[in-house]
């Protein structure tokens, strides 16, 4: 039996802040193998049609970087949002898998690909470039601490970096201020990223109540309580209001202004047509 939940996010967000972390009674760990038969299918949508992407205004290396780039900050198709990260709040951190996940971050045409990716702690991120100029991938955690700062001189070089700590890493390029990528790293396996249809699937979820996080680089983060039924795919739909939670630093002058109100000034969701 499937269940679709339409959530009033403003009210639910308020509740989630004060709601304790739920887990099945008697569990000392969020999940046991015999419980891993349910899944969460999370559809993330925007409350209205997405505005056009802002144009990037390169102020360096224009010959290679082109003057007609669009900043892929909000990719949405028929309101379904790509690149939202969904995860279940886990009570305890699990050790990294024995075989580290392999992630890849490519620079092509002065943009990072992919924009957003997800992985486990201990994942090895390979960075490389197809561009015939210097890029400087600079990774931050918690917006203030450098994790790595690499100079990629040309396509002949690649670098491997192990992501040891959980969190959402932001990768900038110190040379080209419009370049941005995110790598969300978790110390448990219950996470996913929405695809082009806006869907993220998290498997192996135990029945019971869970706190689910939905994060997007521009739209911000929402937290919701989800009750998961056993032995079934639990469908939830999360509707995010259009807003821009980014700090001024993440809206550089090399990107045209985006006609979206900053966070806190949202006029609320549009009624579906």
């Amino acid at each position: 039996m499937t269940m679709t939940i339409m959530l009033e996010l403003l009210i639910m967000s308020q509740l989630a802040v004060s709601t304790p972390h739920w887990r099945p009674a008697g569990d000392t760990c969020a999940h046991r193998p015999e419980d891993q038969v349910a899944s969460i299918h999370c559809l993330v949508q925007l409350d209205r049609e997405a505005p056009p992407l802002p144009r990037i205004l390169p102020d360096k290396d224009v010959t290679t970087c082109s003057s007609s780039l669009l900043d892929p900050i909000l990719i949405a198709r028929e309101r379904s949002i790509q690149n939202a990260v969904v995860w279940i709040e886990s009570i305890e951190a699990l050790p990294p898998p024995v075989e580290p996940m392999k992630l890849d971050l490519l620079v092509r045409g002065c943009l990072f690909e992919p924009r957003v990716q997800v992985g486990r702690t201990g994942a090895v991120l390979t960075l490389h470039s197809e561009d015939p100029l210097t890029h400087n991938p600079h990774a931050w955690l918690d917006d203030s601490t450098t994790i790595f700062n690499i100079t990629i001189l040309d396509p002949s070089l690649s670098f491997k970096k192990k992501l040891r700590k959980a969190g959402i890493y932001r990768v900038d390029c110190d040379t080209h201020s419009w370049m941005r990528a995110y790598v969300a790293v978790f110390d448990h396996p219950w996470f996913g990223k929405t695809d082009s249809t806006g869907l993220a699937i998290i498997n192996g979820v135990s029945a019971g109540n869970h706190v689910v996080h939905v994060w997007h680089e521009v739209l911000g983060e929402e937290i919701l309580n989800v009750s998961v039924e056993q032995n079934t795919a639990n469908h939830i739909t999360v509707i995010l209001p259009l807003r821009d939670v980014r700090s001024e630093k993440l809206r550089p002058a090399t990107v045209a202004s985006w006609p979206v109100l900053p966070a806190g000034e949202s006029k609320g969701p549009e009624k579906p047509k």
Partner: peptide, 10 residues
């Protein structure tokens, strides 16, 4: 002047 050594070596 990029990277940890502040040079692009170009």
């Amino acid at each position: 002047h990029v990277g940890t050594n502040f040079t692009d070596e170009r």
